[in-house]
Measured scan of single mutants.
Amino acid sequence: RKEMTAACTPRRRIINLTSVLSLQEEINEQGHEVLREMLHNHSFVGCVNPQWALAQHQTKLYLLNTTKLSEELFYQILIYDFANFGVLRLSEPAPLFDLAMLALDSPESGWTEEDGPKEGLAEYIVEFLKKKAEMLADYFSLEIDEEGNLIGLPLLIDNYVPPLEGLPIFILRLATEVNWDEEKECFESLSKECAMFYSIRKQYISEESTLSGQQSEVPGSIPNSWKWTVEHIVYKALRSHILPPKHFTEDGNILQLANLPDLYKVFERC
């Protein structure tokens, strides 16, 4: 597991931080080997919608929660590849102030007048994250320049770009939802926020969305749709870069829909 690298990086740093090793061990302890084997050997059937997909393993048909699986995938990559990410360069710098204002204007932020003026909160978020810029760049390849612009994001899987519609809320939550006081809790909560931002979430995906850094293989055609990215990038990574937690067998994120021999018997009677 320590050699797990989802995106190509030129050289690998050895990380011996106790906090990170502890988080890696927790993933191992909570892992479910049968689910790992199923995901490793599954045959992708198709997307139901951005949140759900169908896959077959041996004779069984499964309904998989793409949102939760991708979130767990990105969390584990962030923990196992800690401080070893490439950088996704933004085509132009994104001012943190503008991103924070967009987030505060969104109902998702939960902002009320009692929280104070949005401009003041946005300025605080910019200054707060600028103070964390060195650590964010060093460990997470999340790059913020001296003017308070976001200029780079971590490359977690080759050819995958997170849904940038979720970027404003991500920046807001970096400042408000991460435990910045304790090292282990900081790395864990920061990785979880980043994983949620990178995950496939239906509120940020339309039929026209593209999450891939590449064009489709047909010359002159439109960019790959999110469905292509889910199948050929995300579920491909799920084959080798995730140890599913045991609770996925109990919380409805992986559901067995049918045993195909039983279905064949039904059709034979028709």
Rank of each mutant, 00 (worst) to 15 (best):
R1Y: 14
R1G: 08
R1E: 15
M4D: 08
M4Q: 05
A6K: 10
C8Q: 11
T9Y: 14
R12K: 07
R12S: 11
R13C: 14
I14E: 04
I14T: 06
N16Y: 14
N16H: 11
N16F: 15
N16K: 05
L17E: 04
L17H: 04
L17I: 03
L17M: 03
T18S: 07
T18D: 06
S19K: 14
V20R: 07
V20E: 15
V20Q: 13
L23D: 15
E25L: 14
E26P: 13
N28D: 06
E29H: 11
G31V: 09
H32Y: 09
H32A: 05
H32P: 15
E33N: 11
L35D: 10
L35V: 10
L35G: 11
M38Y: 14
H40P: 15
H40C: 10
N41F: 08
H42Q: 08
H42L: 11
S43C: 09
S43E: 04
F44I: 12
G46M: 02
G46A: 03
C47K: 01
W52S: 09
W52T: 10
Q56T: 04
H57P: 00
H57D: 09
Q58H: 12
Q58P: 07
Q58R: 10
T59M: 07
L61A: 12
L63N: 05
L63W: 05
L63M: 05
L64V: 07
N65R: 02
N65M: 01
T66S: 09
T66F: 01
T67W: 10
K68L: 10
K68G: 09
K68S: 09
L69I: 04
E71L: 06
E72G: 10
Y80C: 05
N84P: 11
N84D: 11
G86Q: 11
R89Q: 11
R89F: 15
L90A: 01
L90E: 00
L90V: 04
S91W: 15
S91Y: 11
S91E: 09
P95K: 03
P95I: 02
L96F: 00
F97H: 01
F97E: 02
F97M: 02
F97C: 02
L99M: 04
L99D: 00
L102H: 08
L102K: 02
L102Q: 04
L104S: 00
L104A: 01
D105T: 06
S106Q: 02
P107I: 12
E108G: 03
S109F: 12
W111H: 02
W111E: 02
T112C: 11
K118S: 15
K118Y: 15
E119R: 04
G120E: 02
G120L: 15
L121V: 03
A122C: 14
E123Y: 15
Y124M: 03
Y124L: 13
I125W: 01
I125N: 02
I125L: 15
V126R: 02
V126G: 05
F128T: 01
F128G: 01
F128A: 01
L129C: 05
L129R: 01
K132A: 04
K132V: 01
E134Q: 03
E134C: 03
L136C: 14
Y139E: 09
Y139K: 03
S141Y: 14
L142N: 01
E143V: 11
I144P: 00
I144T: 02
D145K: 01
D145Q: 01
E146W: 14
E146R: 03
E147V: 07
E147L: 08
E147W: 12
G148I: 01
L150P: 01
L150I: 12
G152C: 10
I157M: 14
D158S: 06
N159W: 13
Y160G: 00
Y160R: 00
Y160I: 03
Y160M: 03
V161L: 02
P163S: 08
L164V: 05
L164R: 04
G166R: 05
L167K: 00
P168Y: 12
I169L: 08
I169D: 15
F170S: 00
L172M: 04
L174E: 00
A175I: 15
T176W: 03
E177G: 03
V178R: 00
D181N: 03
E182V: 12
E182Q: 06
E183N: 03
K184G: 04
K184I: 10
E185Q: 07
F187Q: 06
F187K: 04
E188L: 07
E188Q: 05
S191Y: 06
K192F: 13
E193R: 03
F197Y: 06
F197V: 07
Y198L: 04
Y198G: 00
Y198K: 00
S199K: 06
I200T: 11
R201H: 13
R201K: 11
R201N: 14
R201A: 13
Q203L: 13
I205A: 10
I205F: 07
I205Y: 08
I205Q: 10
S206C: 06
T210D: 07
T210P: 07
L211A: 09
L211N: 03
L211V: 07
G213C: 06
P219Q: 08
P219L: 09
P219N: 04
P219W: 13
G220V: 09
P223N: 06
P223Y: 10
N224E: 07
S225H: 07
W226C: 06
K227H: 04
K227V: 06
T229D: 08
V230S: 09
E231K: 13
E231T: 14
H232N: 05
A237E: 10
A237N: 09
R239H: 13
S240V: 09
H241I: 13
P245D: 14
K246N: 11
T249F: 09
T249V: 08
E250W: 15
N253C: 07
N259I: 03
P261T: 03
D262F: 13
Y264P: 04
K265L: 13
K265D: 10
V266R: 15
F267I: 12
E268C: 14
R269A: 11
R269D: 11
